[in-house]
Design a binder for these strands. Structure first.
Lengths: 192, 192
DNA sequence: GTCATAATGGGTCAACTGTCCCAGACGTTT
DNA sequence: AAACGTCTGGGACAGTTGACCCATTATGAC
């Protein structure tokens, strides 16, 4: 698939390196085949941005599973994300670059907004899902919790990409898990 | 100055739009004058990255002033940053794009690391400065506090740039200020 | 097999990029 | 006035990019 080839190129070379020729080379195709499938390079990039949102959410935030110990569950989920980031830094780097690309490209600004709200609702889904097993009440609305999680991951991602300080990143996640857990209002074990 | 013209172009058009011609046009110069001052486009971009670090730190985080009410001081400082972001979104957008540009450009990766550590020590300076007036002790090392602040601002920046939800950003900052203030150990009013 | 459709390969084009060259203008020092 | 280095302007160059055209080859329905 050309879209996935494009994502690989972006991860390896950045958005600037994702030229039509580089993408078709990665996909093992010719230029003509590209313009047979897509009207233009911009059209492909639009699909790339749309695609990565869904893929990212399911692959990354699905590891966030709440349990009885909310702090530990949050911390484990955040650690899983950090492990994912360390294992494939270029991919997360590409995600943020694509976000900035969308913000800059006429006609794609709205997609950037959708991308972000998709992140949020993705985290909301995971939290809701987990809450089905062990009900948790939060001091603030669930979407706000999700926003804090997403904000944290993005911030930690940029920091780690810049200085590769894993220990510092983990200390940040410790703090984030502690602070978020403080927003959890443990439910009474009786029927409500 | 060509460096500042380049920053204006990047803020207006993004890093991809910061071509040599666009920069000299913004500066009102000719191409020859560019290559008289800089050996190459890459050399200018390196100076741009170096320049923005200092400028950014002094202009943004200087508003963070601690007082007796630590939570309020933190909240005010973060709000000042948000106001700054809203007043000139393209500038902060450019900062993050430049960070990603540095991370991708061979020979500039180390500059990205320096850029980030400069952010951190800038915040440390402000916090230390404020602590001189009203001494504050923290439950974790000061550089870690600074890292949390920087992480938060970057995360909030990306979120606001994507969905422009100012109210949500302010709720995030509420949470951040609360959580950070919880790390402050108020000093005893006697001599230690 | 035949034929229409889908898909591909090679080659070409204009536009844009970074870089460089060279003639000339400017200002300062003799 | 003359000479010097500093700086500027216009033009040109090769390389790369997105887009496109046309001839050719699979692919599959009948």
């Amino acid at each position: 698939m050309l879209v996935q080839a494009a994502i690989r190129v972006i991860a390896a070379q950045g958005v600037a390196g994702a030229t039509t020729r580089a993408i078709v080379a990665e996909a093992g195709m010719s230029l003509a085949s590209f313009h047979y499938a897509f009207r233009s390079h911009a059209e492909l990039m639009r699909e790339v941005v749309s695609y990565v949102v869904d893929a990212e959410i399911t692959s990354v935030f699905s590891s966030l599973r709440l349990g009885t110990d909310i702090r530990r569950a949050l911390r484990d989920g955040l650690q899983a994300y950090l492990d994912y980031l360390i294992a494939d830094p270029e991919h997360e780097q590409a995600m943020q670059e694509l976000m900035h690309y969308a913000l800059r490209t006429p006609g794609l600004e709205s997609l950037a907004a959708e991308q972000y709200s998709a992140y949020l609702s993705g985290v909301v889904d995971v939290l809701t899902e987990s809450a089905a097993a062990v009900p948790v009440e939060w001091a603030i609305p669930l979407p706000d919790i999700a926003r804090l999680v997403v904000m944290t991951t993005h911030g930690v991602t940029l920091a780690w990409l810049a200085d590769r300080d894993t220990a510092a990143a983990e200390r940040v996640l410790d703090f984030a898990a502690d602070s978020l857990a403080a927003l959890a209002v443990l439910p009474i074990r009786s029927v409500t």
